[in-house]
Amino acid sequence: MKILVCVKQVPQKDAPLKLNESGAWIREDVSYEVNEPDAYALEEALRQKEKHSGEVVVITTGPTRAQQVLREALAKGADRAIHLEDPAFVGLDAFNTAKAIAAAIKDEKFDLIFTGLQSDDYGYAQTGVILAELLGWAHATIIMHIEKSETGIKVKRELESGYFQYVEMPLPAVLTIQSGINKLRYATLIGIKQAKNKPMRKVTMAEVQSAISPNLQKIEKLYIPHKAKKTVMLEGSPAEIAKNLVEKLKNEVRVL
């Protein structure tokens, strides 16, 4: 099986984020990491390859710094990488990101494309599904298990409130992967060494420009959310806070 995995670099979970001058985006001088479900998507692709042989290719769009997530993927066992490299990719909406990815892989023949179910920064929850429609492929979302079947694949979709559902579908297909589908591996030292010699194809904005169009949605304003509730903040030394909190538990929450 030949599998493409879309991995995105996003600000680290604990990174302190600040608005930039435009008021419509953040200051980008923060630490980054791989979008969590994308790490699970990569792991799943590696496991499928180990079972059925084939190839795992990783792709990302973003500035030079985004290469880091591709390097990590190569170190974990991906065979090669594609980097659509330009800071301008960060500002694309999900439709355009999917179009750019589709354009970059037009000469390839994948059986499966995995994406994460949602990005931690934009949180569109759309890129994979849009990509499927652009390619004319079947898709399924929020996937927790994948196995080959006689005619294609059988996947387990997560539904709400603890429900699941099996779906049989043909190949090629796009699957959006949910965190927790498997247990992640760590890169080994040998893996990190080998990654240096693995192919990394660079694609410029100019090469995919004709495939993309003006964004169909635009962030007019980014801001700290308005508070819905009045929160009483308890302050002081840990001992004072503990005392104060127990007093609340006794007299206001009435659980002691």
């Binding site: 419509a24 169909l216 007019e220 801001y223 959310p225 308005h226």
Partner: peptide, 8 residues
């Protein structure tokens, strides 16, 4: 963050 998003 929250964002106000427009259709363009």
């Amino acid at each position: 963050f929250s964002a106000d998003v427009a259709f363009t």
